[in-house]
């Protein structure tokens, strides 16, 4: 087939329209979310003292941190799904949760400690955290990669890592309502490790499935 003939067939297909990447990503995440919620409801559940916990600013801070990871990661991954997109000017969005955590760690350090620092950092749930966040992330990660496949990212591994960050951010939001460790030191350590693991999985899978 010569190129003129190919062009003719492409022009004949011009009427074919597909939804935007943002729409496909949204639907894919909405389809995946019940699976993650099912894992949460089956194995974890909301902590029993949630009503009192809500009065603790460090409990609330966990949601601010996880959502400030998930939402910017969604925005940046959609940006990267366009072929000509550069990371320049967008990376700082991903520093939001880091900044929030730094502020939280600072404010906790200024208060009279209820527990020694190592106990706050190690917590009681570090192992559960390291398993639960990645496990709840996996359905969301699959959905995110499916949605972003609809785009044309020039950096598949980076975009896959962003898919990992956004799914870990959403999964961590669920997990935060279960976990009784509210110290920002715990969050900065274990949530970050779990998130890094999911981001690495996203990058590895993304480098294969996000090529177009």
């Amino acid at each position: 087939m010569d190129t003129d003939q190919l062009i003719r067939s492409l022009a004949a297909d011009n009427a074919h329209r597909v939804p935007r990447v943002s729409a496909v990503l949204t639907v894919a995440l909405l389809v995946a979310a019940p699976l993650s919620i099912l894992i949460f409801a089956t194995f974890l559940g909301v902590r029993p003292d949630v009503m009192t916990a809500m009065r603790n600013p460090f409990f609330d801070m966990k949601f601010a941190v996880t959502l400030s990871l998930a939402i910017p990661a969604i925005v940046v991954s959609l940006h990267l799904s366009r072929p000509e997109a550069l990371m320049r000017g967008w990376g700082w969005l991903l520093l939001l949760p880091v900044g929030l955590l730094a502020v939280a760690i600072g404010s906790e350090a200024m208060m009279a400690p209820a527990m020694p620092m190592t106990m706050r950092l190690m917590g009681k749930n570090s192992r559960v955290c390291l398993v639960a966040i990645p496990a709840m992330s996996l359905p969301l990660l699959a959905g995110a990669l499916f949605g972003l496949r609809h785009g044309a990212p020039s950096h598949p591994a980076l975009t896959g890592a962003l898919a990992g960050l956004l799914s870990a951010g959403l999964a961590a939001t669920l997990y935060a309502s279960h976990c009784t460790d509210d110290s920002p030191l715990f969050v900065a350590t274990w949530y970050t490790l779990a998130t890094a693991l999911v981001a690495a999985i996203g990058a590895a899978v993304g480098s294969r499935v996000l090529r177009y």
Binding site: L10, R17, V21, Y212
Partner: peptide, 10 residues
């Protein structure tokens, strides 16, 4: 050309 066509929604 094929990629341009199939990814033009981006």
């Amino acid at each position: 050309l094929l990629a341009v066509h199939l990814k033009r929604h981006t």
